[in-house]
């Protein structure tokens, strides 16, 4: 770490940032796919959800992927902070008139901010769910079940029944959406892919992806708030 990481080329840092980011992007639809079964999509949605949770918490392959996922997340955060810090240093004296240049992606100005929102969300999420699975924190009273079969469904219902939690959840997920909107297309550029035909497609897919992920996740607390 430390010096050798900072000494990496700016392009290499961006490459690793983009690569780790795209890996994280693949994880979100999987998680969303399971979460959506909290909603009464089918008659046996609770069983499907519980089945999926059981699979995700016990399958050895998922456990390996979990390590890869956390490594990618850690790498992404570390480089995000290093790059942000270096970028601040590159302009010690700022402009009096704020910058008025047209930019393709306004969200790119707020990547560190929206990134911190995502981190806050993850902290909340870990305390409420992941640490329960690990046995570091306990589930709410009455919802303690055997170690390999936590009642995540009722834990989620319990949390979404609190409007304050639901509102926070929606706000933070919107931060994730803004983050993703820039991140998706930006990652391909950082990896060196810019093409007259493919780039507009990537930008379109990125927009749809960020909207679907955001709308998907926030639909759950909104559903419970409207009930």
């Amino acid at each position: 770490m430390s010096k050798s990481v900072i000494m990496l080329s700016s392009l290499t840092k961006k490459f690793l940032m983009a690569f780790a980011g795209l890996f994280l992007v693949m994880f979100l639809p999987v998680h969303l796919g399971i979460n959506l079964f909290i909603l009464p999509l089918t008659e046996n949605h609770v069983e499907i959800f519980k089945e999926a949770v059981h699979f995700m918490t016990t399958n050895p392959l998922i456990k390996v992927m979990e390590i890869v996922l956390f490594s990618a997340l850690f790498l992404h955060m570390i480089f995000g902070v290093i790059l942000w810090f270096e970028n601040r240093q590159a302009r010690p004296v700022g402009y009096k008139v704020s910058q008025k240049s047209k930019v393709y992606s306004p969200a790119s100005r707020f990547m560190i901010h929206t990134g911190i929102m995502v981190l806050l969300f993850l902290v909340l999420h870990f305390v409420n769910f992941y640490f329960v699975k690990l046995g570091l924190t306990s589930a709410p009273a009455g919802l303690n079940t055997p170690a390999d079969n936590h009642d995540f469904y009722n834990m989620a219902l319990n949390l979404f029944s609190q409007p304050l939690y639901s509102i926070l959840y929606v706000v933070l997920i919107c931060g994730l959406g803004v983050h993703l909107h820039h991140a998706f297309q930006s990652a391909f550029q950082s990896l060196g892919l810019n093409h007259p035909i493919y780039t507009p497609v990537i930008k379109g897919v990125g927009l749809v992806y960020s909207i679907v992920i955001t709308a998907g996740f926030i639909s759950i607390p909104i559903f419970f708030m409207l009930q």
Binding site: S10, L11, K13, K14, F15, L83, E86, N87, Q89, A90, R91, Q99, S101, K102, V103, Y104, S105, S108, R109, M111, H182, Q185, S186, Q189, S190, L191, G192, L193, N194
Partner: peptide
């Protein structure tokens, strides 16, 4: 500084240099 792919450079370049060049350099 590092590139954040904001593309303000392309918008302000008096010679309209494209950010495609940045991807090519990457």
């Amino acid at each position: 500084g590092n590139c954040t792919n904001t593309y303000a450079c392309e918008a302000e370049c008096p010679k309209n240099i494209s950010v495609e060049n940045i991807a090519r350099m990457n």
